[in-house]
């Protein structure tokens, strides 16, 4: 049995890494740029719907593109996993960190 990753596992793994990071980037751009936010709202009726559709389409398209690029010859499962975990942590921290100022209520911190 080959130790190489299967091509779709490698391709979609790399796509997962890129799409996870893209998720955080799109969030920052749409939240800081009103024209982007308006365009996303206009595209599918709600910015979140457009954001979700973009993420799914990019994940699938990049997955097939990367699967043809012989990624499996350049890295193994361990390396892909490391980068998936890293990308998920970075994306999660960016998302959680971006909204952190929203925990403040009228300048007084969390109110019970």
């Amino acid at each position: 049995m080959s130790k190489l990753m299967e091509k779709y596992t490698a391709g979609f793994g790399l796509s997962l890494i890129v799409t996870s990071l893209l998720n955080a980037v799109v969030l920052i751009i749409k939240e800081t740029n009103n024209s982007v936010m308006s365009a996303m709202k206009a595209a599918l009726g709600h910015h979140w719907t457009t954001h979700g559709a973009m993420i799914i389409i990019v994940f699938v398209v990049l997955g097939f593109v990367f699967s043809r690029m012989k990624i499996e010859e350049k890295c193994d499962s361990q390396k892909i996993l490391k980068f998936i975990i890293l990308a998920t942590i970075i994306s999660g921290v960016v998302i959680a960190g971006y909204f952190l100022p929203n925990l403040k209520v009228a300048g007084s911190g969390i109110k019970y």
Binding site: L16, T19, S20, N23, L27, W48, H51, G52, I55, I56, F59, I84, T88, S91, G92, I95, A96, F99, L100, N102, L103, K104, V105, I110, K111
Partner: peptide, 22 residues
């Protein structure tokens, strides 16, 4: 608890994309 929406909903709705692709 306005931060239940301002923070937790905002974070949840974007983190769900990660769960989805994973």
């Amino acid at each position: 608890w306005p931060w239940a929406h301002n923070y937790f909903m905002e974070v949840k709705e974007h983190l769900f994309f990660l769960i989805l692709i994973l």
